[in-house]
Amino acid sequence: MRITVTVDGTSYTDDVEPRTLLVHHLRERLGKVGTVVGCDTSNCGACTVHLDGHSVKSCSVLAVQADGSEVTTVEGLARDGQLHPVQQAFHDNHALQCGFCTPGMIMQSIDLLADNPDPDEHAVREGLEGNLCRCTGYQNIVKAVRDAAHHMRPGAGPEAERVADTGSRTASSVGGGGE
């Protein structure tokens, strides 16, 4: 089946087998190996990407279901060689050990901050409920997300503006509307 998916701003048209999972399409066909697979059970969240502005586990979406959609992966976050504020906060706060969960953690953190720009610790933990860190580095991950929230506040400087076009909530795919 022929599908067209826009990934990190570039449109790709490919023939795929219907059974191809989105994560495999991203990694094996498009070379977007920043997105990783950590489990076979839809639990770990390592494969999290944004599909039309909302976080999804790309191992639990068929590539054909993404036909006509926009996907953002962790590879599409940096702008002009500058890390996204959430990436920067993970770096600054040592929010990774082996780093395997990090792409998913970062993508889900951006989703969480779009819904709730100033989450307390509890809200961060709830928002990251679908992401597992086998190194159990949760303390610093939570710290990083709250630090990123601080840097992304309106008026926090040029960094915040970048978020407007990357952590986008297009709402196009969602009838209920965000907050």
């Binding site: 839809s42 999290t48 999804v56 639990s60 979406v61 969480l112 819904d115 679908g130």
Partner: peptide, 9 residues
Amino acid sequence: VADPQVRHR
């Protein structure tokens, strides 16, 4: 139910 990613789909 589940987690935010699962609830989006």
